[in-house]
Design a protein around this nucleic acid. Structure first.
Length: 572
RNA sequence: GCCCUCGUAGCUCAGCGGAUAGAGCAUUGGCCUCCGAAGCCAUGUGCCCGGGUUCGAGUCCCGGCGGGGGCACCA
């Protein structure tokens, strides 16, 4: 189906085209009508004409009689559009019969989404929250939109720290070490290794020669390394299950995967004439980047000591994503501190011809998670906060609140529900603010069930669901004829028709918060409707209409929340 | 020093060059013999400062001030 906004846009476009081909109607939802087209103002300026007069001309050229009840030029030259009730009704009927709720399936592209990226033998901490939650939401939205998503979990599984980690593994004994890992206590393991490395010269020496053995391909060393990697991946899997993220072990393609390709990256850069030796390192100097002294800034692909830097790995990965995975779109859900590094990697890839112009390649930047003091979130003792601890605390709080609210569920069911609520709280708080901004992590506010929170949306959904539970019999949309006589039901109907543009704008801007804003607005429209329009006590056609609106609301909330990675329980 | 980014209501945040800048929390006051009051309805307050572009600037440009990040071999 053609969604409502698009239907209007198409008609307006041809009216605008009649005056000036290609002119953008700038159609927006309006406070003064259902929609408003602002395009006449900008166009009038460009053509040097009176805006109101131009707007009148456009309205005259538009054929909107079957869609709009009222079209008027207002103010300096806005075109205000009020939809015809019969059109809204017809759209709603189509929507009711559409399992995709009006969202068209896009042309299929391969979208590589790089997110989460924890380090082997290191705890997943709050620093991994945003990349994991945002990346997963984007992956879900892209999949629903019809694209093929290739998730990439670019874990840190290679590099100099592995010398000390393997030596520590040997000191502990493999079984003991594995036990520590399976308890999910990666912090202790890493810290113990670190302390020995810093304080014990003999250990440090062993670690260094272990790195050499690892890089040299010593089989026993590789086996021990594999133990660390496998144990870590299985631990990450537990965390992902806990946070309900779609990443699977098969998405893990760590840094080590690219080891064999690094030499080739260097050679090809050299052949392309891009490689420059500087201070003993092999570098590329992409134009436009400067260091502290105002000199050209290198992307160091091979270090002075002959080791490869992470730039080499990132270049190899990018190349593989384009040439082997055939990615049409490469997304890097990585924090802001990496912005310059990634820009340089992208620039070098373009110089080398590895990144064709047709491929969209973008860092999905996000801001920091701050504590109540507005500084980077840390625990009381100043340590980084473990991700699982964060989740557990949220679950605990959600459980207590459910108890206070007199939840209808108890025991196992309540614990499960508390988990769903806690995840909704954390994910929604993370996704609903503009991605690039820092946000203050305040569990109390997030888990609160009032206001613009995940739990509020779940509650709205639970309320709709309870109507159908009370109904007793399975409900099916028959040929419902929508009258939408009350303001509240009309407002809800318009909200229900708004999913497709909300989702598409969320995707094209890579901003999940636009979908969040839409869902919150829809939930509010629903609760206002719920308050004003009794459903079960209504009769006849009116009852059918209201049930149909409820059904659509439930389906829309479920779908929207699902795209954000949030569950929508039927009962709370 | 250079580059990037952010600065909107008491607090946490929306705002895609357009009309009177919106929500949530908090405040105050109304709503449950009626589908879940975790709700609904009402209530006051605000764009860091100074220039500029524009018919129109929270939004774009320049310059300040303030916070955060980055700026050669850890990734």
């Amino acid at each position: 189906m053609v969604d409502t906004k698009t239907a209007l846009e198409i008609r307006l476009q041809s009216a605008f085209d009649a005056v000036e081909p290609g002119a953008d109607p700038v159609l927006r939802p309006s406070d003064h009508a259902d929609f408003q087209a602002n395009g006449a103002l900008a166009l009038a300026k460009r053509l040097g004409r009176h805006p109101r007069e131009l707007a009148e001309q456009i309205v005259g050229a538009a054929s909107l009689d079957d869609l709009c009840e009222k079209i008027e030029v207002s103010g300096p030259g806005f075109i205000n559009l009020t939809l015809l009730g019969s059109f809204v009704a017809a759209q709603l009927s189509t929507l009711a019969a559409d399992s995709r709720l009006g969202v068209g399936a896009a042309r299929t592209e391969n979208v590589v989404v790089d997110y989460s990226g924890p380090n082997v033998a290191k705890e997943m901490h709050v620093g991994h929250l945003r990349t994991t939650v945002i990346g997963d939401a984007l992956a879900r939205m892209y999949r629903f939109a019809g694209h093929t998503v290739i998730a990439r979990n670019h874990i840190g599984d290679w590099g100099t720290p592995f010398g000390m980690l393997i030596e520590h593994l040997l000191d502990l004994g493999e079984e003991q070490a594995i036990a520590t890992f399976s308890m999910g206590d990666l912090n202790t393991f890493y810290k113990e290794a670190r302390v020995k490395f810093d304080d014990d010269d003999a250990f440090k020496a062993r670690s260094r020669s272990r790195v050499v053995a690892l890089q040299g391909g010593d089989s026993e060393t590789l086996r021990l390394w594999r133990v660390l990697v496998d144990e870590s991946i299985s631990y990450f899997g537990e965390v992902y299950a806990k946070i309900d993220v779609t990443l699977v072990p098969g998405d893990v393609v760590g840094e080590s995967h690219y080891n064999e390709m690094l030499e080739g990256v260097i050679n090809d850069l050299a052949t392309a004439g891009l490689l420059v030796e500087s201070e003993g390192a092999q570098c590329v100097f992409p134009p436009g980047f400067q260091n502290r002294e105002g000199e050209p800034l290198p992307l160091i692909v091979r270090k002075r000591d002959d080791g490869f830097g992470y730039a080499a790995t990132d270049l190899a990965a990018l190349r593989e994503r384009v040439s082997v995975l055939h990615g049409d779109e490469l997304l890097y859900v990585v924090g802001a501190p990496q912005a310059q590094h990634l820009e340089m990697v992208f620039a070098v890839a373009r110089l080398a011809g590895w990144l064709p112009d047709g491929v969209r390649c973008e860092q999905v930047i996000f801001g920091n998670v701050l504590g109540p003091d507005h500084k980077m979130l840390k625990s009381r003792s100043g340590e980084t906060v473990k991700l699982v601890d964060l989740l557990d605390e949220a679950i605990e709080r959600a459980y207590v609140i459910l108890e206070e609210r007199g939840s209808q569920l108890d025991g196992e069911a309540r614990l499960h529900l508390a988990t769903q609520v806690a995840l909704a709280a954390i994910k929604y708080a993370d996704l609903s603010s503009e991605r690039q901004h820092d946000y203050v992590f305040d569990l109390e506010r997030m888990v609160a069930f009032e206001g613009d929170t995940g739990p509020y949306l779940q509650y709205a959904h639970a309320r709709v669901s309870s109507i159908f539970r009370r109904l007793g019999e399975p409900w099916q949309a028959r040929d419902v004829h929508f009258e939408l006589a009350e303001g509240a039901s009309r407002a809800l109907a318009l909200g229900l028709l708004g999913l497709p543009p909300a989702l598409s704008s969320s995707l094209s801007s890579l901003q999940p918060h636009r979908l969040c804003t839409y869902l919150f607005d829809l939930a509010q429209r629903f609760t206002s409707f719920y308050d004003a329009c009794p459903v079960l006590s209504a009769e006849g056609a009116l009852r059918e209409e209201r049930l149909a609106l409820c059904d659509l609301t439930a389906r829309t909330l479920r779908l929207g929340l699902d795209l954000l990675g949030i569950d929508a329980p039927d009962q709370m």
